[in-house]
Simulated assay, not measured.
Amino acid sequence: MMMHPLHKPAYEAIFKAAEKYMRVRKNDVHIPLSYRFALELMEHYPEVNQAVVAAGIILHDIGWYAIDEEEIFEKGFSGPDILTSDVRFLHESEGVKYAKPLLASLGYDEEFIEKVCTIIDGHDTRKFAKSKEDEIVRDADKLWRFAVTGVSVACDWFKMTPVQYAQRLEDTNIEQLHLPESVAIAKRELTATRALLLAHVL
C-alpha cells in the first residue's frame, strides 16, 4: 500500500512514542484513521504547518489514558451535553501534560510544542478553532465517525444501531465541521458506510 505523500517518518516516530497512550477507548483505531483524514484535508491547505497538524491529530486524545475507562464512558459519552463533562476537560489537560515531554524527547522546540498543545487543549470543549491547523485537527477528529469503522465502534459506545448512529451523524455532526472539504468528506464517507452496512435494509 502506497503511503500518502504528506506522510513522513517523523510522524511515525510520534505515533511510536505515543503508542502506550493509544491503547484505551479504541484510540489505536480512532487516531490513525483521523490522521489519514488530516492528511487528506492538508492537501487543500498547503500553507498550513503540516508538522503541527500531524502532531496535533496524533496526540489530541492521548489524555484519555489517564482516565478510568468506565468513567470515560459513564461521564464522557452520556448525558445532555457530553462535551462539557469534567472528563472531557480532563482528557485535554492530561493530553497536554503527556504531549509536552513526549515531543521534547523527539527534539521538537518549545514554540512547536506550544502550538500543538494549544490545539490539544480545547479540541473537544472549545467552541472555536484558533488557527487553520486547529480547524483541520478538529475536523479530522470527527471525520473518522462517518467511516464504517467509526460507525461500528460508536454504535457500541452510544448503544445505537448503525442506521440510528448514521442518522445522528447526519443530523448533528456534519454541522459541527469547520471546513467545506470536511463536509464533503463526511458526506462521502457516510454514503459509503450506509451502502456497506445495508442501511436501506437494516
Rank of each mutant, 00 (worst) to 15 (best):
W64Q: 10
Y65N: 02
A66P: 05
A66I: 06
A66Q: 11
A66E: 14
I67N: 03
D68L: 07
E69D: 10
E71G: 01
F73N: 04
F73W: 14
E74Q: 14
E74C: 02
K75C: 10
K75D: 13
K75Y: 15
G76A: 02
G76W: 11
F77G: 10
G79I: 13
P80F: 00
D81N: 14
D81L: 05
I82F: 00
I82P: 00
T84P: 05
T84M: 04
S85R: 13
V87Y: 12
V87T: 08
F89N: 01
E92Y: 14
E92V: 07
G95F: 12
Y98F: 15
K100S: 02
K100I: 15
K100V: 15
P101S: 06
P101L: 07
P101K: 08
L102V: 12
L102M: 10
A104V: 12
S105T: 01
L106K: 06
L106G: 08
L106Q: 04
L106F: 08
Y108H: 11
E110H: 07
E110V: 02
E111R: 15
I113P: 00
I113E: 04
K115H: 09
V116L: 10
I120Q: 05
I120W: 13
G122L: 02
H123A: 03
D124S: 06
D124A: 03
T125H: 14
R126W: 13
K127M: 11
A129T: 02
S131I: 01
K132F: 03
E133D: 11
D134K: 03
D134N: 09
E135H: 02
I136R: 03
I136V: 04
D139P: 13
D139L: 05
D139S: 13
A140E: 03
D141L: 07
K142R: 15
L143F: 14
L143A: 06
L143H: 12
L143I: 06
L143W: 12
W144P: 04
R145D: 09
R145Q: 11
R145V: 03
A147N: 12
A147I: 13
V148K: 13
V148L: 04
V148C: 10
V148G: 09
V148T: 15
V148Y: 04
T149V: 12
G150I: 09
G150F: 14
G150R: 08
